[in-house]
Write a protein that binds this DNA or RNA. Structure first.
Lengths: 233, 233
DNA sequence: GAAAGGAATACTGTATACAGTAGCCGTGTG
DNA sequence: CACACGGCTACTGTATACAGTATTCCTTTC
């Protein structure tokens, strides 16, 4: 590494204090979208959102741009921004990609994770398994996401991690209306994955993860067919 | 599909006529970056770019946002935008992800591609193999990119295609200074992949693609070590 | 002479204002 | 009564103006 920014930066500040408004707006809009307060297909009027959030149109525009790049909204030039309406089969595609990325992440993690990574995973597992048996559904879903994210980071591949994070968020959006966690069984599978990673067995870790994501996929597919599909437009 | 836009739209316009400035600015900046006219680490001053392109700061900002999301520039809040400087090992990570995505794409294509897809791939192959033996290096690189993109689209998974497109562009950026094509051997491999896809043999197509991307990876690694690495900062 | 502090500077972040255009409704006509 | 034309409305796209902040260089002091 080069030199530490001339005058010794000390510890990196965890978060920029005067957080850019576009960040706050982005978070707010993402929350409104994922909670379905802004339903798919909804026309997002810039002035309206700006007034609602108490800022000018500029930060709103920038946030919408970012949301567009990440697939949350569709931007029709000259007309406006609309909350993305999932295509038929898009959930299936997302789940397929997610399975692919996470399986590879597990394989890499088995060859890369150090003691700290393992410790972190075990801690998250403990929290998740508790949330699954007693806490609210929301907490369990969050814990599940945190666990998967930590595992992907342990792979050591930053590019893979960024892509997987994007995909994972969109997958969770589909799950939101179902609001269900596969529960204890899922966390048993997580535990076996950690073991394989810790033991340094890439193929086993990958196989377990492939199996795990496939089960999740099946669970979603059944719920999607039985219950209400997100959209038919 | 619904109704054809009331008054019969006829053929969909290939490109929006009053193209948003941000698009043009985005393209222009991307070109400047990929051609190294704006080298890694360069501080991108908004007013400067705006003056250079004859527009205001607004479209420039929006283009920079998008470039940031796609990993081309780093945005330091309160300070500005900088052309992304590749980390040590980032090329390796990108190539690994690319191999993963394209291998899966080949597998899916083998189970999804129709006659039109095959025809398109063969046409691109013909163009590419000609470019490789006679045309300029640039044409061969473009043909290669086109072929890979077409194959990924043939997989039928849009999400996968979008992700792969992003990764592929960044990979090509690394290749740009090397400005080399693996030539005829690479196109022989492409031909075999098409055959496997057409025959509907997923595993064979995947294996061939894995092999193909691995060779490309090796070629890059050797060139990277022997020649000049993109950056040392 | 080196280090610490402060002021100047230049850039980003945000807000406001103006222009252009796409969609929509009412009116008129066949 | 259906259809086409014209004006209207509302929104986006772009430009300009102002405020806040990080950086840098100069000055001062030990």
């Amino acid at each position: 590494m080069p030199s530490p920014t001339t005058t010794a930066g000390g510890a990196a500040d965890p978060v920029r204090r005067p957080a850019p408004l576009r960040e706050a707006v982005y978070e707010a809009l993402l929350d409104l979208i994922t909670t379905r307060a802004l339903p798919p297909g909804r026309h997002l009027v810039e002035t309206e959102l700006a007034a609602r959030l108490g800022v000018s149109r500029q930060p709103v525009r920038e946030a919408l741009q970012r949301l567009s790049n990440e697939g949350w909204v569709d931007l029709r030039p000259g007309y406006g921004a609309f909350v993305h309406t999932p295509d038929e089969g898009e959930a299936e595609q997302l789940l397929a990609v997610r399975a692919l990325l996470e399986t590879e992440a597990a394989r890499l993690a088995a060859g890369n994770a150090d003691a700290d990574d393992i410790e972190r995973l075990r801690a998250l597992w403990l929290r998740g398994t508790r949330a699954a048996e007693e806490g609210p559904v929301e907490a369990a879903v969050t814990a599940n996401a945190d666990f998967h994210r930590a595992l992907i980071v342990s792979s050591g591949n930053t590019v893979l991690a960024e892509l997987a994070a994007q995909v994972d968020r969109r997958v969770r959006w589909f799950y939101a209306p179902i609001a269900r966690s596969r529960g204890q069984a899922s966390w048993d599978e997580h535990a076996r994955i950690i073991d394989a990673v810790e033991a340094g067995r890439p193929d086993e870790a990958a196989a377990l993860m492939a199996d795990h994501t496939e089960r999740t996929r099946t669970a979603y597919r059944e719920l999607g067919e039985g219950g209400d599909t997100p959209e038919t437009v």
